[in-house]
Amino acid sequence: MFRFKQFTIQQDRTAMKVCTDACVLGALADVTADRILDIGTGTGLLALMAAQRNPDAFIDAVELDDAAYSQATENVAASSLGERIQVIHSRIQAVGGEEKRYDRILTNPPFYTNHLRSPDGAVNRALHTDDLPFPELIEVVGRLLKADGQWWVLLPPYEMGVLTQLAEAMNLRPFRRLHLRHHARKPVFRLISGLRYGAEAVTDETLDIYEPDGRTYTAAFRALLQPFYLIF
């Protein structure tokens, strides 16, 4: 269980637990929008963070895995934010159509391709791209994102490069990119990119979670997560 200031995440039945990089995505992404889509919601974390940050947004949170869908539904229902979140049990490839497009799409996608498999099928779905390869993900985003919308995605640096190259073919380009490090002496381990159609320039930023001592949270990280973390 992970308690935030305005909601609680139960995660005993989900393969992907609450992690710092996903929380940074949820706190950073632009959610000033009426309709938001969370692809692969897992515990419901990103959907709940978006609902907290934007009291006027309506959010569709899509999840394929049975146990994760059930747990996300319970987490949303237990929250005061849940009236504006719909948890949908489906493959994202089967969701929506011309009549259903979104102002913002949030994605913390699986990214392993050739790594060793877990005997747990839920873990494989959460970590490996089999159920949602990058080309299919980009096709889905192209179908569901409004012309003036934004797609926010979290990936390791190499995988973000692959995804960005594929998205370029659809004229989806980064306009903002956050390089996330544990601290200044460590390499970047995640990138968070905001993409939109026809973006011509990208603003690059770096966020360190800790000071160089590896224990003290940086002021920038504290400020970003202060609305959510009980410790701040």
Rank of each mutant, 00 (worst) to 15 (best):
R3P: 09
F4G: 05
T8M: 05
D12T: 15
D12F: 09
A15F: 13
K17D: 02
C19A: 14
T20H: 04
V24I: 15
L28Y: 15
L28H: 10
R35E: 09
R35I: 03
I36A: 00
T41W: 03
G42V: 07
V62N: 02
L64R: 02
A72K: 01
T73R: 13
E74S: 12
N75Q: 05
S79Q: 05
S80Y: 14
R84H: 09
I85L: 05
I85E: 00
Q86S: 12
Q86P: 02
H89P: 01
S90D: 14
A94M: 11
G96E: 06
G97F: 07
E98W: 13
E99D: 15
R101L: 08
R101H: 06
Y102F: 14
R104D: 08
R104E: 09
P109M: 07
P109A: 10
F111Y: 15
Y112D: 04
T113A: 07
N114I: 07
L116F: 13
S118V: 12
D120I: 10
A122P: 01
V123K: 04
N124H: 01
N124P: 00
R125N: 02
A126D: 01
A126L: 01
A126R: 00
D131S: 08
D131K: 06
D131E: 15
F134H: 06
E136Q: 11
I138Y: 10
I138Q: 10
E139Q: 12
E139P: 00
E139D: 15
V141Q: 07
G142S: 13
G142Q: 09
R143E: 12
L145R: 00
A147S: 14
A147L: 07
A147C: 08
D148Q: 12
V153L: 06
L154K: 02
L155T: 01
E159C: 01
E159I: 04
M160Y: 05
V162M: 05
Q165D: 14
L166F: 11
A167G: 09
P174I: 10
P174K: 03
R176M: 08
R176S: 13
R177K: 07
V188C: 14
V188L: 02
I192Q: 03
S193I: 03
L195E: 04
Y197W: 03
G198I: 04
A201Y: 14
E205H: 11
L207N: 02
I209A: 08
I209H: 05
D213V: 09
L224M: 11
F228C: 00
F228L: 03
I231P: 00
F232H: 09
